[in-house]
Design a protein around this nucleic acid. Structure first.
Lengths: 352, 352
DNA sequence: TGTCATCTGGTAACCGGTGTCAAATACTCT
DNA sequence: AGAGTATTTGACACCGGTTACCAGATGACA
């Protein structure tokens, strides 16, 4: 109806992209009305809405995320803070988070940090301050560091920690039952006739390592088996440390007939070490790992392991962050169950 | 000097975080001057700068990234678009990008997509439109899709493609010399006495697959070896496809004494398949892979493979995007050299 | 027909920075 | 001293959205 007095340049002067003003002008309504359409405000005449939507479509208008972020004091970013415990795990987590973000305006911003660096807290702080993500997911082992959670609180950043045990209240945590799952795995070794079972524990100070170790001890205790200190070796979750730890256990006499390694990488190391000494797996040595990363099925023999529902956990973590954003309305579960995946690296204990 | 008439609420009303106005007021200068301090403008009195810096430090002021992004029409995000060709590779790329971003205000936003999805282009478009990243790094095999590069151009988004061969002009590309590297690897098999060498090629339509295949053919040609079609099997870069392809080759009579697989996953599959038929590696069958992912050193025997300088390539890609942002001023290299890593999966050809 | 409640849509201020341009000050040179 | 130039600083509009608040239109009801 109303004629534009002067022909206003269409689109932002710099980018050429249509702005909310263009939409408003072309559909003959105010910015505010367009804004209402974008944000699905209910108090809006259907006919007006349709008219605006048509113009939006014709123009290919997409609201400027920076402007929205500024006005809403929120940005549409979910952060992932991790210390690369394992490539596959990180990628699975990314996948889970992305699944949760699917169909929303949110994107995922990834921030690896070095747990050992003196600047760890500063690195995280500067990431949170610079990007001000809407919320962050924190992966183990970083998630076990309470100082990081406190830092998030201080900076007013939502967070959810992923872990191997309950770390926090349900709102800030997603956990798995590592202890029970490991106990089940070791129980399986016992019922397969193994009496001398070695443990390759994870590194000291890791919650997951402690939980898995407890599960191991639980199983032995309930089977009334003894657990001499010599049957426990410690690794740091890497393949190489698995080899080193396995060598220690395989030097023992009598030699254990089975080994539970606290993750798959180390279990692969055990198999590697066994092969180097011509110990047949599983005939002479049964091995169980934890995580069910691809390596578990790619080595020979395929590894019996505990599957950690990492994708689901990550999805749930992200949905928790998004609660109240039109996603994750229903309460997301906080506890996830791991379970044993039986493949070929376990056999009955050799007689003798 | 000047008394504030009314006590203005300190910090943003909602977030409680100090704003540029707080800094300006407390240091008795204008917003603009504070802005100059933040942006290290040279036309600024040293004494003023010091005074403002003190206030900034005392307040713990950090500029709001959203507001900056809006005013500068840039956001401080570098995108990574990939189709999860391989977990380790993706993580290495992330590491490389992060190295480039270190010390800048930029963060990395990761967007995995499904190459096979009908909505591929829409997914990427909506990602670029919604987040408007400053620039994106595109991983193979997506990087080989020219339509994606065109889409970036259309949306005014900087991009750099990573690939196995020259895909674009130096400004938009970072490549490795796969063809030569593979030729070197196959040459090595030849000088180890192998005359019957099988190839497990990558999937049709992949530039990397084609390049590696050409390198293979180059080497055979220069060694005057014949390459019957039967000695070529095709996989899709997965472990399982490696097994299937290997079985085809190992069924041949005479059986090849060496196999070059176009990536490590498939090479692991070859070793897996060989073991399943009691063919000793490397005594009866030599194997070479490509990528040097961790799996190469974790399987038995450790895999001879071609190391792809992926971290450096990714860093360089990101620096190219940042050129003119205070980083990557010097021209970043566009071509990277892969080289053979000799481990234990190659032996002299068995006599017979 | 007048009044009030309800619905819709507009105006103006604001989110927290940055660019433009001109004013204020300091410094040089006749 | 006065003019010319360089250096510092600030006022103000603007980036592209959103919210607070208000006004006009519509329909119900007396």
């Amino acid at each position: 109806m109303s004629e534009a007095e002067e022909p206003p340049a269409q689109g932002s002067r710099r980018t050429g992209k249509p702005t909310i003003n263009d939409v408003a002008r072309l559909s003959g309504v105010s910015k505010k009305t367009v804004s209402r359409v974008i944000n699905r405000s209910p108090l809006l005449n259907d006919e007006t809405r349709r008219r605006v939507e048509t113009v939006i479509r014709e123009l290919g208008y997409v609201p400027n995320p920076q402007a929205r972020a500024l006005a809403l004091r929120t940005n549409f970013l979910i952060g992932l803070i991790h210390d690369n415990p394992n490539a596959q795990m990180v990628l699975n987590v990314q996948q889970g988070i992305l699944e949760a973000l699917q169909g929303t305006d949110f994107a995922m911003v990834v921030r690896p940090v070095d747990r050992g660096a003196a600047t760890l807290m500063d690195d995280i702080r500067s990431f949170l301050e610079r990007q001000r993500p809407y919320g962050v997911v924190i992966l183990p082992p970083l998630s076990e560091n309470d100082a990081i959670a406190r830092l998030c609180d201080e900076l007013g950043c939502r967070y959810v920690r992923m872990g191997s045990a309950e770390l926090d209240d349900a709102e800030h945590m997603v956990a798995s039952n590592d202890r029970e799952a490991v106990a089940e795995a070791v129980q399986f070794l016992y019922t397969s006739g193994h009496k001398l079972i070695g443990l390759i524990a994870g590194p000291h100070g890791f919650r997951s390592a402690a939980e898995r170790r407890r599960g191991f001890e639980d199983a032995l205790r309930s089977a009334s088996l003894k657990l001499p200190r010599s049957l426990i070796a410690e690794g740091n979750y890497t393949f190489e440390s698995g080899i080193a730890a396995a060598e220690k256990l395989l030097d023992l006499s009598p030699r254990p007939t089975a080994i539970f390694a606290s993750n798959d990488e180390m279990a692969a190391g055990v198999i590697h070490a066994a092969r180097a000494r011509d110990i047949a797996v599983p005939e002479e040595l049964s091995v169980i790992g934890f995580d069910d990363t691809p390596i578990a099925s790619h080595i020979w023999p395929p590894l019996t392991t505990v599957r950690w529902p990492i994708v689901s956990m990550a999805r749930s973590a992200a949905l928790k962050l998004l609660a109240g954003q039109g996603r994750g309305e229903e309460a997301e579960p906080s506890l996830f169950l791991s379970r044993l995946v039986r493949r070929a690296s376990v056999a009955f204990a050799p007689q003798g």
